[in-house]
Design a protein around this nucleic acid. Structure first.
Lengths: 247, 247
DNA sequence: TTCTTTATGGTCACTCTGACTATAAAGAAG
DNA sequence: CTTCTTTATAGTCAGAGTGACCATAAAGAA
């Protein structure tokens, strides 16, 4: 803002509605899933859309996003605080909402595999979708979703937040599955292991010799998320290109 | 936005003002400079601030940013089109502007060394400042400026856009100076050279054997910006940490 | 000339990575 | 109770990339 037009008459500007849109991701059954809600009214009635809503008069966009996240997932605000929430970018095309001028701040949230959303309020029809096969969404949400997917893919390269998709204790195999799912590639298991374990603070072994059962083969050691947030040097995706699309 | 509160009464929401703020960077005399404007009115009268202004009813935030950029630099819109403009993030603290609710979309612009700004309109008091020694700025612009600096520092690692700070033709020494200035470190000249030249599409040699004079030593070959946008593998900063601050 | 400065070319050891092999420990199949 | 299959884990090895150097070239300055 800053250099406002002289005078600063509150009527000198056209009022905008400001909203937040959330791309809530989780990894479930080796597929990237995103939380969508079905629209019950025009425009785009019956279409699926990213959850979101208006920013209230006395809250910031991030507060609004976390409030919406709690509402849509049906979890308490406290438990939602631990989820990774990241501002993506703001979408402001004048015609992105046919009703009026709406500027939307998009966020990406990374959550572990949760029970089916028991939405209160708006989220009556909230549901997890395979992020790769969402039909055409309402508004410009296809674009937002694609941008969000790109962003978290890039974030996995340089940060440790793949653990945000995992439960409190996880195996390295589960962590690797996060990478493979988000990137859509297969990684070499010993190499992935070496990279994670030699990065200080990425994960920390759970003290005792507890091991996870359930699957077929040898039980795996359990780890917790470490304290590091950045990954140096990065864990680059195979195959040349940096992102899917260069925005 | 999507799931609007039922009914969608245009009065159901509090109107927000939406603005853009620009952190316009250039490298001048081996220092990172940022374009600031002096505020002529309350609040923060007499303080320096990032240039910016309201998003108009029929333009997107990016269009508003590029319009402001042209106004503040005094250049034509056409020439401003070649500048790298990148959305940073949106600042939405309810109290960031004491007058009213203002949500601001921040952009970073990277421009080559320009003549002193001949601002038209708002930019009557526009001036380049050493980005490291700006006094306290108006509003939350200190934070925005710091975020912007962090971001472009990180961008130099993974992208080729350091050339955005250079004129059309430049020497590798000048390109290296961009990195050293933004990062605040010294780089080894032969190693930097090797990295740039072995990255396909980063720079392309100017055909003939033209060389730049002016300085002391051996004349340097001239290059143009290449077509590549991403840098693979990245050119990581020396000294552990990825960014100055982990936002 | 000689010195200083900058550009450029090259070496070498070290790190990191990708590809790969081998072993261990579980359940499943016979 | 073997044997097979599956997954976890340990280790090897060559090549790419990088940081730290040293050497030479070409200009102006002394």
């Amino acid at each position: 803002m800053s250099t406002a037009p002289e005078g600063y008459d509150p009527h000198a500007f056209v009022p905008f509605a400001v909203t937040v849109d959330l791309a809530v991701f989780t990894v479930r059954e080796a597929r990237l899933h995103v939380l969508l809600v079905e629209r019950g009214e025009a425009p785009y009635k019956g279409r699926w859309a990213l959850p979101g809503g208006f920013v209230l008069p006395r809250e910031s966009a991030e507060e609004a996003a976390r409030r919406e996240l709690a509402e849509e997932t049906g979890l308490t605000k406290k438990s939602v605080c631990s989820f990774h929430l990241e501002q993506l970018r703001t979408y402001s095309d004048p015609d992105r909402d046919p009703r009026m001028r709406v500027v939307s701040v998009a966020y990406a949230a990374l959550v572990p595999d949760l029970p089916e959303p028991r939405g209160g309020g708006d989220a009556a029809h909230a549901q997890w979708w395979d992020a790769a096969s969402t039909g055409p969404l309402a508004f410009d949400h296809d674009r937002i979703l694609a941008d969000a997917h790109d962003r978290i893919g890039a974030r996995l390269e340089y940060s440790c937040l793949a653990t945000a998709f995992c439960p409190a204790e996880f195996t390295l195999g589960e962590l690797q599955e996060v990478y493979e799912t988000v990137w859509g590639v297969e990684l070499d298991r010993p190499n992935f292991r070496r990279k994670v374990l030699t990065t200080p603070g990425f994960v920390q072994a759970v003290d005792g010799p507890p091991r996870r059962t359930g699957g077929r083969g040898k039980p795996a050691a359990l780890y917790r998320a470490g304290t590091a947030t950045a990954l140096h040097p990065p864990l680059l995706r195979p195959e040349g290109r940096p992102e899917g699309r260069t925005s």
